[in-house]
Design a protein around this nucleic acid. Structure first.
Lengths: 109, 109
DNA sequence: CGCCTGCCTTAGATTATCTAGGTATGCACG
DNA sequence: CGTGCATACCTAGATAATCTAAGGCAGGCG
């Protein structure tokens, strides 16, 4: 019931792929980045984030590597694969198309 | 895998409320209307549609009445309640806000 | 009569997200 | 040294939305 801010189901993977397309990041960093970019409108739950990352790693869209952060902590850095880039393009195109359609219908219906 | 056209989860209720806001319709009619308005981009599965209608009736957003169609068939006509109208406003506002945010993030990320 | 179309229903699977906990470690501070 | 906070990750289970797939019934038409 948190009126505050929910995620649209189906958009999380796309958003993650998008931030990773700028450069690798660890899970925690992805969360921060999305929150920052959306001015806190998007708050990614860890219970959604990590399962999503595993899913996408399993599909070969992203790959992970353990490294140290600037804060000297172990973190898993994710980066886009070639397949991930393709997937991002696909999802972005779908989003553009669909959101436009929905917006149109909502205005004309 | 129908690459053709999927629905964004979470938007179906809103779309239904929207078409009903123009006047009552039966389930079949809602499907047709949405398909027509979206130029076939949105294809509402009956297995999604009817459960959604029940849900919303249960929540008091819409109400139903059995009548005869022009084709002389029994059909359940749904119309918006006052609460439904409020809900529609709410969902529309949320959609506008969220889709704008997502689109922005996708462009700037 | 037999078939097509309009129209509704529902059980079950699938999938995404959230809830709500948990673990571990570096660092700052008293 | 110990406490607490921030960083960072993991996961089991619940919840909810959608799809799959099937079935039913009734009117109109050839």
């Amino acid at each position: 019931m948190a009126d505050k801010s929910e995620l649209f189901p189906g958009t999380l993977d796309m958003l993650i792929l998008r931030v990773l397309s700028r450069g690798e990041l660890h899970g925690w960093g992805i969360t921060n980045k999305l929150e920052q970019l959306s001015k806190s409108a998007l708050q990614v739950d860890e219970g959604s984030l990590y399962p999503s990352l595993y899913r996408m790693e399993g599909k070969g869209w992203i790959e992970a590597e353990w490294r140290m952060t600037e804060n000297n902590r172990r973190a898993k850095y994710y980066s886009l694969t070639r397949a991930g880039r393709k997937q991002l393009e696909h999802e972005q195109a779908l989003w553009d198309r669909m959101s436009a359609i929905i917006t149109t219908v909502m205005q004309t219906a």
